[in-house]
């Protein structure tokens, strides 16, 4: 077997193991809560017999390990349960069509992925270009200005950047909507306009880190002898960086890009709340406030899975970008 394939398979197995352990942690944390599904469904005035009956029906009287594996197989089949809020709604209104957690999460998950995707499409080229330029003109006024600017945007809380953008691009100059109104059947152009302001906020948050790492990776390489050689034979500075330094700097840059995309996944929570964006982050925060356990559990697992997958992707991609690993002797 090709050694790279072997390493990748090892990493994948390790990632799956991590995900498995993380699911145990999430399940345990949620099961520390007093009361359970049966009590939540019946409310405060439930008789002990009724609670016991529902527990038996739902299998909540089973041992812990059995319940965990039951929950895990449900999750893997996409059966995320029914949210408590929906249950209350149903018992009050007498409605029939109960929305499952999966029904609630699916469209919001798509929205969040769209937001993160737009942010990544803007941020990655922007950050790499800025990083290359800062490395090219290092220690110049441009480099220093970019350095102070990125340090400021790394340090600012997401909501500060979001409100500054709202102030200038939505309130003072009404170019973009400050509330992301996304409805079913929205056209792509409207969707992009509504997503742009949250996406720009996320761009500001992640660009700084990616740009600094790109700059550092390139500058690290500029001290190597083969760059010195290229410089001595009269290659222009721009060509040195793009043709000679960048190919060898890809591994750390790809790594930091994937890590920042993983950061995007958690960064969306605050940004979605600021712009009232109907994504999974907002759903998560609402569920935490209402203590809607099935939703919290499902969102947590999705966020953790995305985070682990992107970290895994960072590992694998940076290995693939390394020619010494791709072509072993």
């Amino acid at each position: 077997m090709h050694p790279v394939l072997k390493i990748i398979l090892q990493r994948l197995a390790l990632g799956l193991l991590t995900l498995f352990i993380v699911s145990i942690v999430i399940f345990t944390a949620v099961n520390m809560l007093p009361g359970d599904f049966a009590q939540a469904i019946l409310g405060q005035s439930a008789t002990p017999e009724a609670v016991a009956a529902i527990r038996r029906d739902l299998g909540l009287d089973q041992p812990y390990v059995v319940r965990y594996f039951g929950w895990l197989t449900d999750m893997l089949q996409g059966n995320l349960g029914i949210s408590y809020a929906q249950l209350n709604f149903q018992s009050n209104m007498g409605g029939q069509n109960l929305k499952t957690v999966a029904d609630q999460i699916a469209p919001r998950f798509a929205n969040t992925m769209f937001l993160a995707g737009v942010a990544a499409v803007i941020a990655v080229p922007f950050a790499v270009t800025l990083g290359v330029l800062a490395a090219l003109y290092r220690n110049s006024a441009f480099d220093k200005a970019v350095n102070v600017g990125t340090l400021t945007s790394i340090s600012s809380p997401e909501f500060f950047l979001a409100y500054i953008l709202v102030l200038f691009l939505a309130v003072l100059n009404p170019l973009l909507p400050s509330i992301a109104n996304i409805y079913q059947g929205i056209s792509l152009a409207d969707r992009l306009t509504a997503t742009l302001l949250p996406a720009l906020t996320l761009t500001l948050v992640v660009t700084a880190h990616m740009m600094r790492m790109t700059r550092a990776a390139i500058i690290n390489l500029l001290a190597s002898p083969y760059i010195e050689m290229a410089r001595l034979k009269g290659v222009s500075p721009f060509r040195i960086i793009v043709k000679h330094a960048l190919p060898n700097a890809w591994a750390p840059i790809i790594n930091v890009i994937a890590l920042n995309l993983a950061y995007l996944i958690t960064g969306v929570v605050v940004v979605e709340v600021v712009f009232n964006y109907p994504g999974i982050g907002q759903l998560f925060v609402d569920a935490v406030k209402n203590r809607d356990i099935p939703v919290v559990q499902a969102c947590c697992l999705i966020f953790a899975a995305a985070y682990i997958l992107l970290n895994l992707a960072a590992d694998i991609l940076s290995m693939l970008a390394n020619p010494r690993l791709r072509h072993p002797k």
Partner: peptide, 20 residues
Amino acid sequence: VLMAIPSLIFSLLLITVASA
């Protein structure tokens, strides 16, 4: 294991538990 869960998400989960 603890570092494999994004910290903001994990703290939100634990705060839900604590708020009970």
